[in-house]
């Protein structure tokens, strides 16, 4: 439990997933929301770029790329 309390998206490996709990950056939250990433929904790391950054993530029918720096601001429940 202790680990999942402050688990963030950047710590997931390829093909691992979680539930979006909170996004600690308002601009990022609105941008992600408008691109289909809703708090409370499932989020999955599809692929990590060859140089470990950025990453490809999916939620529902949305499939986007974000940087690790932003992924750090996405709290998830595993």
């Amino acid at each position: 439990m202790g680990k999942s309390l402050n688990m963030t998206l950047d710590r997931l490996k390829e093909n691992e997933s979680g539930i979006i709990k909170q996004i600690n950056d308002e601009d990022l939250a609105i941008q992600l929301l408008s691109m289909g990433f809703v708090i409370g929904e499932k989020i999955k790391v599809e692929r990590i770029a060859p140089l470990k950054d950025p990453i490809l993530i999916t939620s529902g029918s949305s499939y986007i790329s974000i940087r690790n720096a932003d992924a750090k601001n996405i709290e998830i429940i595993v």
Binding site: L28, L56, S62, Y63, S65, I66, R67, A69, D70
Partner: peptide, 10 residues
Amino acid sequence: KSTFTLEMPI
């Protein structure tokens, strides 16, 4: 701040 938020179309 610099970001890279880009949709991957099918």
